[in-house]
Nucleic acid binder design. Structure first.
Length: 572
RNA sequence: GGUGGGAUAGCUCAGCUGGUUAGAGCGCAGGACUCAUAAUCCUGAGGUCCCCGGUUCGAUUCCGGGUCCCACUACCA
């Protein structure tokens, strides 16, 4: 039994995430966590909301709330929406909670003790009317290069030039539109990443063989270009206060740590929250000197996050010179697009997690988003594709199979697992299919190839339909009830097996199936050793046991739905 | 501009350390079955594997060049 620590990239607090976010981090992390648990591993699956930063403050202002109220409310919303998708986090924390404050301040202290933090002065744009310093992107003005009048402070959208906000002509605040802005000197803490360059490269070198190319190429790109010293504090009030050895740091009373510094630390902080709430031992997962040396740590994220997880966060960890667990495997995803374009809130294009659950149960989305996960490249979502995938895979191939077998067992065999007959060539064919397909399925999960895992799962379900067509117990029944009994007994065992292998991707449906068949918790394992195909696997349910016909598992998506949803959510 | 990824059947995607007829699902056409949610099963049609060169006995696969799409490019996350 292995010990596996799994984290999903932290969803930002400013509103419910869309399906692309779900598909690229939280969902595959959950599928993997569920697979690992079913395979018998000890799993700790951690996530949290990322709550600091200017966007959170602005969103709170817009909502007419304090930022603390806003974050508390949005955290609960995101937590509930995640539960609606059956995301099985062991803990879903908050980066604004106390453990993360303590840890963030601790890391800053030890980094400074190790000579990796400098206090430097820089020039920032201050908006007098907004009473706040403005992040680069919230300053707009005329581009000094092309004279475009709505260039952002970080980059001109018209000519693409990278800018420093103090270069802008006639700058104004994009928050309020006020032109009453000025450039002020402000002091900040800088993390001396330049000093950590070699150590981080050695770390990446050591891990590169376990990382996909998408991950390593991004990491090496940053290293090859050379790390720069980064400011890790901001002139804001909402965030982790800047302290030094437990006391407010002089001159930093109105500053907080930068969100990108504290957010990844919340992976640890959220684990501490879990420990405090459950009595668990968090150090056993994070401190290699306290039992975490045998932990495999797996991170899930969209590709935009890779640099921060392969380079920036390791700088923090390695720079502390303390025995913290570092990432072992990193699974990065491309983007889910909407009809080939972007998800867009403002243009009402795309579906957000809460709205998706109003249309259909979580399993429908989980299946589609896993079977079409953007693993190797960006993937397009369309309602038509969604409809055909759900209808065919879930309703026709799986749902109908479960229904046809259990109903026949109820009608002809008194709802019992039939006893008679002996397996023959068709059962041998089925056992042989499983003997090749089940190991392939396990291999795909181990490799975190979720798209292929879904395809193999479906192929196994389809093989069940093929088997029952060959065995044709309804025909056999006319001449030999025993012959029919073999087919239905095998079919019922397949139903149970199909439920077992469905657990990682469509857990709610899997549970319905397994409950109807009376499969006890202990017999739902996905461990390779428990999936040895053969006659025994096709005769595992106790003969004579009473089974139930499960409620209809899925409902088909109709053309009318597609028309309706296209109107409501855009697309087409 | 830089870096990386992608371009394969009508659609969404596999695959190819170079080797006889390039695969899956959906969609489409025909057939079978009738236990089941008009579900299932079988068969078939359908591809200049982006373009141009090169290496090779042989290239969808390797190399060079080109075209198009996408992401990242360090303080928005």
């Amino acid at each position: 039994m292995a010990r596996i620590l799994i984290t999903s990239a932290l969803p930002y607090i400013n509103g419910v995430k869309h399906l692309g976010n779900l598909a690229g981090s939280q969902l595959p992390a959950d599928v993997y966590a569920r697979y690992c648990r079913a395979a018998g591993h000890e799993v700790l699956f951690i996530c949290a909301t990322d709550e600091h930063g200017t966007p959170a403050e602005l969103a709170a202002i817009e909502a007419g709330q304090t930022v603390a109220e806003y974050c508390a409310e949005q955290h609960d919303i995101q937590k509930n929406v995640g539960a609606g998708f059956s995301l099985s986090f062991d803990w879903f924390g908050r980066s604004s909670n106390e453990p993360n404050r303590r840890l963030t301040q601790h890391f800053a202290d030890v980094l400074e003790d190790n000579g990796l933090i400098d206090e430097r002065s820089s020039k920032q744009v201050y908006s007098v009317d907004d009473k706040r310093f403005l992040p680069d992107r919230y300053v707009e003005g005329t581009c000094p290069n092309c004279r475009f009048e709505k260039a952002r402070g970080d980059q001109c959208d018209n000519c693409g030039t990278l800018l420093d906000p103090i270069q802008l002509i006639n700058p104004y605040s994009s928050v309020s539109g006020s032109r009453n802005v000025e450039i002020r000197d402000t002091r900040h803490l800088y993390l001396l990443q330049t000093k950590m360059q070699d150590q981080v490269r050695a770390f990446v070198d050591a891990r590169a063989k376990d990382w996909p190319q998408l991950t390593t190429s991004i990491a090496y790109k940053w290293l090859d270009e050379g790390l720069i010293d980064r400011s890790i504090t901001r002139d804001l009030s909402w965030g982790v206060p800047v302290t030094r050895n437990g006391k407010p740091r002089p001159g930093f009373e109105n500053k907080v740590f930068y969100v990108w510094f504290d957010a990844p630390i919340e992976y640890i902080g959220s684990t501490v929250e879990w420990a405090e709430a459950t009595g668990g031992n968090w150090e056993r997962w994070w401190r290699t000197d306290k039992g975490a040396d045998d932990v495999t740590y797996v991170e899930f994220m969209g590709k935009d996050n890779v640099a921060f997880h392969t380079v920036s966060f390791p700088v923090t960890i390695l720079g502390s010179k303390e025995p913290w667990k570092l990432v072992d495997k990193l699974k990065a995803f491309n983007w889910l697009n909407w009809y080939g374009g972007k998800f867009s809130t403002s243009q009402k294009r795309g579906v957000f997690m809460d709205k998706a659950l109003e249309l259909l149960p979580g399993d429908y989305w989980r299946w589609y988003l896993t079977a079409n996960a953007p693993e190797s490249s960006d993937t397009a979502f369309t309602w038509e594709h969604f409809k055909s995938t759900v209808n065919s895979d879930l309703n026709d191939v799986l749902g109908n199979f479960v229904n046809r077998i259990t109903k026949y067992a109820a009608a002809k065999f008194d709802s019992k697992v039939p006893e008679g007959g002996k397996p023959g060539e068709h059962e041998a064919w089925m056992a042989n299919e499983l003997a090749t397909r089940l190991p392939a399925l396990i291999a795909h999960y181990e490799a975190m190839e979720f798209r292929k895992a879904a395809a193999e799962t479906r192929a196994i379900w389809a093989a069940g339909n093929e088997y029952i067509t060959k065995a044709a117990p309804w025909t056999a029944y006319k001449t030999s009830v025993d012959q029919a009994a073999v087919g239905i007994r095998t079919g019922l065992n397949l139903v149970a097996l199909f439920g077992v292998i469905a657990q990682p991707i469509i857990p709610d449906t899997a549970t319905k199936i397994l409950e109807a068949l009376g499969v006890p918790e202990g017999n739902r394992s996905l461990a390779a050793s428990k999936l040895v195909a053969g006659d025994a696997m096709l005769d595992a349910l106790p003969r004579g046991m009473t089974i139930a016909v499960p409620p209809q598992l899925f409902t088909k998506i109709e053309d009318a739905h597609v028309v309706d949803w296209t109107q409501r959510f855009g697309g087409g």
